[in-house]
């Protein structure tokens, strides 16, 4: 089976006037369908640059990147846009929903840019289906500022899912969320992953990375460690634990 992501000795160098910054110094990586990968690293380690390359937002300086078997190096700006639209779904740290736009219209957005032409009824149907997957079908007509952070991130996940991508790329998806909501969002990811969706996620929180199946640690533009998660956390169990802890705290407070 073709790996969904295949990096072959990818480098990325920014030349900032006289200074050359080697953000990525030769990364080779293979990710199969159905994996759930966390990319970790301190700031400046090159993980964001790696993420941009994986997301076809940026082109490697050298090396090859095959997404779903297709070499991306020869593609121009608009061809990469089409590739992002069809094969990738993005979830950002800051949610990046369009303000003053309903959840439903936000989720419809990628379909407006897809090569495939869909009727507005079909767009609506698919968007509602995606909202249902993230458990927000009752919030379809809400505006982002009427939703909590966790709900906004779930709308963003629905938007990333709506074109049925090969890979879901999440850039610190829990970075702006409290721990309880983080667990909730990770629960959504785990559920999607159990249904066979490949997910790659950047995070710097160790306990969040433990919800994934595989952890990559990037340091100085190289992969320093690549290992399977031994004691994987399950979101539902963690959620239950949090609830019990809260209940206990309430008991103490009322006593």
């Amino acid at each position: 089976m073709t790996p969904v992501v295949q990096l072959e000795n990818v480098t990325k160098t920014y030349s900032n006037g006289e200074v050359e910054v080697h953000a990525v110094r030769g990364i080779s990586l293979t990710v199969q369908h159905g994996e759930f990968v966390a990319i970790m690293g301190s700031s400046g380690s090159g993980k964001s640059t790696l993420m941009n390359v994986l997301g076809c937002l940026d082109r490697p300086t050298s090396g090859r990147y095959l997404l779903d078997g297709v070499d991306t190096s020869g593609l121009d700006r608009n061809e990469r846009a089409d590739l992002r639209n069809r094969k990738l779904g993005f979830v950002f740290q800051g949610f990046n929903l369009l303000s003053r736009t309903t959840a439903l219209e936000n989720v419809e957005l990628p379909m407006l840019y897809s090569v495939e032409r869909l009727s507005s009824a079909e767009r609506r149907r698919r968007a509602l289906r995606a909202l249902e997957i993230v458990g927000l079908s009752d919030r379809a007509e809400h505006l982002p500022n009427q939703l909590s952070g966790g709900q906004q991130q779930r709308v963003a996940i629905a938007r990333a899912l709506v074109n049925q991508p090969q890979v879901l790329l999440a850039d610190e998806p829990t970075g702006n969320l409290d721990s309880r909501t983080s667990v909730e969002v990770m629960g959504v990811f785990q559920r999607l992953n159990n249904e066979g969706i490949t997910i790659m996620m950047v995070t710097h929180e160790l306990d969040i990375a433990r919800f994934c199946r595989r952890n990559l640690i990037v340091r100085d533009g190289r992969i320093a460690r690549d290992e399977a998660v031994p004691d994987r956390l399950v979101a539902e169990v963690e959620m239950q634990r949090l609830r019990e802890a809260e209940a206990a705290a309430k008991l103490i407070a009322s006593a």
Binding site: D82, R84, F90, N96, L98, L109, Y113
Partner: peptide, 16 residues
């Protein structure tokens, strides 16, 4: 700008 960034990221062409 950010809105334009979102649109470009999820597949808008420069022409769009």
């Amino acid at each position: 700008t950010r809105e334009i960034g979102i649109r470009l990221a999820i597949g808008a062409h420069d022409r769009d």
